[in-house]
């Protein structure tokens, strides 16, 4: 199962994280066995992402409402893709009284290790309606190749 490749790396600060990771792994295993669906894993680092792949490309999606494209920074280093950015702080005014403040403001940074080799020259990042879509073309060597059988 491909998901195992993205399992979180052990965090050295928390001695229990490894146990937690194992427990989650077992949970996923049993859930997968029953439903055959891709398990829903909860993110620990902002933003939560969804990742898809097909034969040609890898697609990463993240919900980033209120983050302007100019405040976003995406970089690739080796096989690690880093998303960084910030959401503008509120413009606090004396005459404004807040009734609810549920939308968090601040900065984020998330590193994603890519499961396959990709072509670093052809990465397209698009932001539409608060959803960031990054399309990464797979490197030529990992694309499936059709081999024709020749009869003699």
């Amino acid at each position: 199962m491909a998901v195992i490749r993205f399992a979180e790396r052990p965090r050295f600060r928390n001695p229990w994280s490894e146990f937690e990771r194992m427990r989650r792994g077992f949970d996923e295993l049993s859930r997968n066995f029953l439903s055959g669906e891709v398990p829903f894993s909860s993110a620990t680092v902002y933003p939560p992402i969804n990742m898809y792949e097909d034969a040609e490309q890898l697609i990463i999606k993240a919900e980033l409402p209120g983050v302007a494209a100019s405040d976003m920074d995406i970089s690739l280093e080796g096989d690690t893709l880093t998303l960084q950015g910030r959401r503008e702080p509120r413009h606090d005014d004396d005459k404004v009284s807040y009734h609810r403040r549920e939308i968090a403001r601040g900065s984020f940074s998330r590193a994603i290790s890519l499961p396959t080799k990709i072509d670093p020259e052809s990465i397209v990042a698009k932001l539409a309606n608060g959803i960031l879509t990054i399309t990464l073309a797979k490197a030529a060597e990992v694309k499936p190749r059709k081999i024709t059988v020749v009869t003699e």
Binding site: E63, L64, P65, G66, R90, D93, K95, V96, S97, Y98, H99, R100, R101, E102, I103, A104, N129, G130, I131
Partner: peptide, 22 residues
């Protein structure tokens, strides 16, 4: 959706997070 609601003398403003909605 998560919201921010604030009020001034003249108006009430509601901001809601709705990613994926046009």
């Amino acid at each position: 959706p998560a919201v921010d609601i604030f009020e001034t003398e003249k108006q009430v403003t509601v901001t809601a997070e709705m990613p994926g909605v046009a």
